[in-house]
Amino acid sequence: MRRTVDYYFVPQSPWAYLGHARFAALLRETGTPVRVRPMDLGKIFPLSGGLPLQKRAPQRQAYRLLELRRFSEALDIPLHPEPRFFPVAGDPAARLITAVAQHDGDEAAMRLTGAVLAAVWAQQRDIADDATLAALLAETGLDAARLAQSRQPEVQARYDGHTQAAIDLSVFGAPSYVIDGELFWGQDRLDFVARRLRA
């Protein structure tokens, strides 16, 4: 049976960045379709007991930086643990990815998602800035009109729908991969995702 993966993430997540290329490669290898679903963790955290980074205990914040360095080295993926533009608002990029998924399909949205994540964590660019988002569209070969379209109420409604769907599926963090209703949370669970898709 051919499965589809629902991919829930926020475009400013370092963990989504660390997993994105491996996830995309797994989809290609297995021929698995994906539904790209950026979500608003700001609405999910209050329901799931999560805390924004700035409100977490100091020891948790310190360990997060340690783990980012570990994974960056282990996976050989360039990453600035404390990039110049972070924290950064993810909504503009999330709406842009949503608009691209709507107009150009999920494969194009995956391509843009990878570029947005790398922009934050490898290139230290401001993904809340319209000029950066326009440049990322150009760099990924996508229509510049998507930026204006991303501000339309219909796109906001889709983005809100992704967030509600994530809540309904008990998603509480990013990235999350959902297969046949089963949740896999975190880029460090991609081995389990692979097992399911190859079964």
Score class of each variant (00 low, 15 high):
M1C: 08
R2G: 10
R3K: 15
T4N: 13
Y8C: 03
V10C: 12
S13N: 01
S13L: 00
P14A: 08
A16F: 05
Y17A: 08
L18M: 09
L18I: 03
L18G: 07
H20G: 02
F23E: 01
A24N: 01
T30G: 04
T32F: 11
V34H: 09
V36W: 08
P38M: 10
D40M: 13
D40R: 14
L41A: 06
L41T: 05
G42Y: 07
K43N: 13
K43I: 08
I44M: 00
F45H: 03
F45D: 00
S48Y: 01
G49Q: 02
G49R: 01
G49M: 01
G50W: 00
A57Y: 00
Q59S: 07
R60D: 03
R64N: 03
R64L: 06
L68V: 00
L68R: 01
R69D: 01
R70N: 05
R70C: 00
F71Y: 15
F71A: 13
S72W: 00
S72L: 02
S72P: 03
A74M: 12
A74G: 12
L75P: 06
P78D: 04
P81E: 13
P81M: 09
P83F: 09
R84T: 11
R84Y: 10
F85L: 03
F85K: 04
P87F: 10
V88P: 03
A89M: 11
G90T: 10
D91F: 13
A94R: 11
A94D: 11
A94E: 15
R95P: 09
L96H: 06
I97S: 06
I97P: 06
A99T: 04
V100A: 13
V100H: 10
Q102H: 15
Q102I: 07
D104N: 15
G105P: 03
D106F: 03
D106P: 00
E107F: 04
E107W: 04
A108D: 07
A108M: 05
L112Q: 02
G114E: 00
A115V: 00
A118H: 04
Q123D: 15
Q124W: 08
I127H: 07
A128D: 10
A131S: 12
A131K: 12
A134Y: 04
A135P: 01
L136C: 00
A138I: 00
E139Q: 14
T140F: 05
L142W: 05
D143W: 05
A144R: 14
A144G: 15
L147M: 04
A148Y: 14
A148V: 07
S150L: 14
S150E: 11
R151N: 12
Q152A: 12
Q152W: 11
V155S: 11
A157H: 14
R158Y: 13
G161F: 13
H162Q: 13
H162L: 08
Q164A: 10
A165L: 15
A165T: 13
A165F: 09
A165V: 05
A166F: 08
I167A: 12
D168R: 12
D168A: 14
L169K: 14
L169R: 13
S170V: 11
G173W: 03
S176C: 03
S176G: 01
V178F: 07
I179P: 11
I179G: 12
I179D: 14
D180F: 05
L183V: 12
F184S: 02
F184V: 02
Q187D: 14
D188L: 02
D188Y: 04
D188E: 10
R189S: 05
D191W: 13
V193T: 09
A194L: 08
R195E: 14
R196G: 09
R196E: 14
A199G: 14
